[in-house]
Amino acid sequence: MKHYKHILFVNVALLILLLQFTSQNVFAQNLQTQNQWALLPFVKENQYNPILTPGSSIFTDPITQQTVKWEAAHVFNPAMIIRHDTVYMLYRAQDSAGTSRIGLAVSTDGHHFTRNQQPVLFPDNDSFKQYEWPGGCEDPRIVADANGTYYLTYTAFDGQLARLMVATSTDLIHWQKHGPAFAKAYSGKYLNVWSKSGAIVATYSPNNIVATKVNGKYWMYWGDQFIWAATSTDLINWQPIEMPKGMKPPVALRGQAFNMPQLQIVLPTRKGKFDSDLVESGPAAMYSPNGIRLLYNGRNIPAIGDKNLPEGTYASGQALFNAKNPVQLIHRLNHYFMKPTEPYEITGQVNNVCFIEGLVYFQQKWWLYYGTADSNIAVATCNKPL
């Protein structure tokens, strides 16, 4: 009898271990399956980073008529696109006075860039000076249309208010400014509220990033307190999405959101996580029939967020929206996929910043370009197929 009890005990113990092992494997497989939609993993190219640092080029400013070293202080937050098998980088550059201009650099290998000696987009004595001076032109993001015209969203900063702007080009060097993206929406209701960081929904290919319509309209994710959405018929004039009657915000309004309470928040901040304080759009949003993937930036406050990340840390997240209803969030990573770890990411103009803004598929892999500590530019790569 004792012998049978011993066998029974051993069998039960083995069954428990088998169930635990199976349960852990199922959990791991489910976790992997849940995140299959995400673009992962990214590995920092530390042997090359930072790939762009401040430069010594000079430029005669058209407003002050003074010669300035327009990129001598900081370079960061680049937009990226492929043209003629070449990687084009449009990056934010600051002079010693803090004015931002957008520079251009090109590469045939993704690591080594040759700069244009003059900025390609900058404050001028034009009708947009009132929005762009003295702060400048900041934080570009780029897509193309099916006809080969490039559309750049960027931030104009007049020293007090940020406004989301649009410019177009056919060669990435000569740009036509079109002014504030929301100037005509709701009779100018959102012209003079804080707006920036416009990531247009697009289809990525090895050769281009092409704006893609959903339900007959172009879509854009934008904002840097929460992330909101907007639509357009021409990629120039945009209309922010307001909440339907009876809808309530998913979180309590904070910061700039108090000035635009009617807008529908599509990606809120989250308590206890790396994106507790602020969320901000990254590169052009990635359209596919299975969903719209948005890579975004999150800022942390340990008191309400991730206690293991320093105050003000910018880390990188991903979210997936419904391909047929771009305001419907269907998946979101629970954890950042990139954070500051390197000296040039931890110390700089703003400490503890990895700010993702440019993404291309080039040479059979993904290249994610980002600003480091608001001071330099670096890159990380991912081998996941297109």
Rank of each mutant, 00 (worst) to 15 (best):
G305L: 11
L267E: 00
V106P: 04
F274V: 01
P249E: 02
N208R: 09
Q32S: 14
I16N: 07
L14G: 04
A323L: 09
I142D: 00
W367M: 12
Y204Q: 05
N116R: 11
H178Y: 11
Y314V: 07
T67E: 15
L295M: 12
L18H: 04
M286K: 01
P302L: 10
L267C: 05
Y336C: 09
A28L: 14
N192D: 12
I377W: 08
L320H: 08
H84K: 15
N116G: 07
S100L: 06
G103F: 05
L333W: 03
N125F: 12
V350F: 14
A378D: 01
M89Y: 01
P283L: 07
L359N: 02
V10M: 12
Q349S: 10
H335I: 06
A73L: 11
T341Q: 13
A211F: 10
Y150T: 00
M260W: 05
G103Q: 02
N325G: 01
N207W: 03
K307R: 14
I304R: 11
H178P: 07
V12T: 14
D109C: 12
N383L: 14
I330H: 03
G98P: 08
M220S: 05
I173K: 14
K196A: 10
P302G: 10
A72D: 11
P343Y: 10
G148Q: 11
